[in-house]
C-alpha cells in the first residue's frame, strides 16, 4: 500500500458510519414508521423520498458509496480481530465482539434487503406498502427482518460510542460510561421505531 493510509482509512470508516450512513439509517427508519399510520401514509412518504430531486446523486454519494466503503473496510476490521471473551469476559470486550458480529449480520441483511427492494425497483417493481407486506408475509422473512433491524440498530448505536472514542471526544472513563448509557438508550429507542414499522407490514 502506498505509505501509511491505515489511520485515514480507519477514521474515514468511523466517520462514514455516522455521517452519512447513520443519518440515512435514522431517516429510513423514521420514514418507514409511516407504515404504522396505514398503507396510504407509507406510500405517500415512500413516494416523497423516491421523488426527491437529484435522487441518483443522493443515492450514490449519500448511501451507496459510503456504505460500500464502510462495509468492505468493516469486513477487514472484523476479520483481523481474534475474539477472546471466554478469557476476558468484560463488558466492553463483549461489545467489541458484538460490534463485529452485528456488522457482518447487518451486511448480509442489507445486501439482501437492497436486492429485494432497490434492485427490484430498478427492474421495474414498485416499492410500496404491498411489496413489503408480501415480503414479511413469510414468517421466516419477518424474523430475518427483525433480526436484521436489531443488528443494524445495535451496530449503529454502539458504533456511535466508538466513534466518540475514536475521534477523541470521550476521553475520561466517566464520559465513556455515560456515553455507553446514552448510546444504549438510542439502541432501544431506534429498535422500537424499527420493529413497530416492520410489524406494521406484517
Amino acid at each position: 500500500m502506498a505509505g501509511n493510509r491505515e489511520f485515514y482509512y480507519r477514521r474515514l470508516h468511523s466517520l462514514l458510519g455516522v455521517i452519512p450512513v447513520g443519518v440515512f439509517l435514522v431517516q429510513h427508519l423514521v420514514v418507514n414508521h409511516f407504515a404504522t399510520r396505514g398503507p396510504e401514509a407509507f406510500n405517500r412518504a415512500a413516494a416523497f423520498m423516491e421523488n426527491l430531486p437529484f435522487r441518483y446523486f443522493l443515492e450514490i454519494f449519500v448511501i451507496f458509496l459510503p456504505l460500500l466503503f464502510h462495509a468492505v473496510y468493516g469486513i477487514y476490521i472484523a476479520f483481523t480481530a481474534k475474539f477472546n471473551t471466554s478469557q476476558y469476559g468484560y463488558f466492553r470486550n463483549w461489545m467489541f465482539m458484538l460490534q463485529r458480529i452485528t456488522g457482518i449480520i447487518t451486511l448480509i441483511f442489507v445486501v439482501w434487503h437492497v436486492y429485494e427492494t432497490r434492485v427490484q425497483a430498478a427492474f421495474g417493481a414498485e416499492v410500496n406498502y404491498e411489496m413489503m407486506a408480501n415480503i414479511v408475509n413469510n414468517p421466516f422473512m419477518l424474523w430475518f427482518y427483525i433480526i436484521g433491524i436489531l443488528s443494524t440498530v445495535f451496530h449503529f448505536a454502539n458504533g456511535l460510542w466508538s466513534f466518540c472514542v475514536s475521534w477523541g471526544l470521550t476521553v475520561t472513563p466517566r464520559s465513556q460510561q455515560v456515553f455507553t448509557y446514552i448510546t444504549m438508550l438510542i439502541f432501544v429507542a431506534l429498535s422500537i421505531v424499527g420493529i413497530r414499522a416492520i410489524l406494521a407490514f406484517a
Binding site: R11, F96, S166
Partner: peptide, 19 residues
C-alpha cells in the same frame, strides 16, 4: 502512531486497562 499498525488499530475492547 498515525502510521500503519498504530493507534487506529485499537478496537476499544478495553481488555488492556482491565488487565
Amino acid at each position: 502512531i498515525m502510521g500503519d499498525g498504530g493507534l487506529a488499530n485499537c478496537g476499544n475492547s478495553q481488555n488492556c486497562v482491565q488487565s
